[in-house]
């Protein structure tokens, strides 16, 4: 059986599992939308700060749910895999001719499907409440592709953590860390408008800032190739590194001969 077919079977199972856990569906849809509503309304006066790049904070902040949705993907991929390890299901899979790489890629395939649906939803919410994409329809497609890529990258990170620790709790513990990473970025204000020097420095070194800025550029700027290049670059790097790490962790976990 081809590796691609194996990926397909694992991905199908991953999608089924996700679809059957209402919390996995509801949280990625409800929480980012709620935070988008509250924060964009609460910080709407921030558009009056001199130099603010948009006259709509909602448009400026619309990149946020895509990244938060990706963090949920991390949790889903990680906790599902950790549950497989804890329940012994991974051993069952290990006794089949399933290739290790196919397991990870299949798992992420399921995440990609969910992330794609999530991202279409976030974009639809934005469009419904009046956001207009400066990059047009093609920009919208690129936005979905980039956001789904980011979700895959974070999902691989979650899979790595799950395989390394074998514990759902440990994966859950990763979420606050990533959440902190999200908040210590240019999520709320453009980096040049962050007043506190230390915060601006942290945000500059924080790769999440570039992911957000790439997504944001498609919404409020148009085609900013530098922002897009950095976002795709960081997403690709993160995905590649996390995949290599996850594969390595799987080899350690599956000591099968």
């Amino acid at each position: 059986m081809s590796a691609l077919a194996q990926v397909g079977y694992v991905a199908r199972r991953s999608v089924l599992r996700t679809a059957r856990q209402p919390a996995n569906i509801i949280f990625p849809f409800v929480f980012p939308t709620a935070l988008l509503a509250v924060t964009s309304a609460g910080l709407s006066p921030a558009t009056k700060i001199p130099g603010f790049p948009s006259d709509s904070f909602l448009a400026f902040f619309l990149a946020f749910p895509f990244i938060q949705g990706a963090l949920f993907a991390t949790m889903n991929a990680g906790t599902d895999l950790a549950r497989d390890i804890q329940s012994g299901f991974l051993n069952r899979l290990a006794l089949t001719p399933l290739r290790g790489g196919a397991l990870i890629v299949g798992q992420l395939g399921g995440i990609a499907v969910l992330a794609f649906i999530q991202n279409c939803y976030y974009l639809a919410v934005g469009l419904i409440v009046g956001v207009r994409l400066e990059s047009g329809i093609v920009g919208g497609i690129v936005l979905i592709i980039l956001a789904t890529g980011v979700a895959i990258a974070f999902g691989a990170l979650g899979a790595f953590f799950a395989l390394r620790t074998g514990s759902g709790e440990a994966v859950q513990g990763l979420f606050p860390l990533l959440f902190v990473g999200l908040f210590l970025s240019s999520m709320n204000l453009p980096r040049n408008l962050i007043e506190a020097d230390w915060f601006r420095t942290v945000a500059t070194f924080n790769p999440i800032s570039y992911l957000i800025e790439g997504l944001r550029s498609l919404i409020i700027t148009g085609w900013d190739w530098e922002a897009l290049g950095l976002a795709f670059g960081f997403a690709g790097l993160l995905a590649a590194a996390a995949m290599v790490l996850a594969n390595w962790a799987l080899q350690l976990r599956l000591t099968r001969t």
Binding site: R13, R17, R20, S87, F89, L90, L95
Partner: peptide, 14 residues
């Protein structure tokens, strides 16, 4: 071989 290991390794959602 076939194996049924100590923990009934099943996916509760399937």
């Amino acid at each position: 071989i076939g194996a049924a290991l100590q923990e009934a390794a099943l996916d509760s959602l399937l």
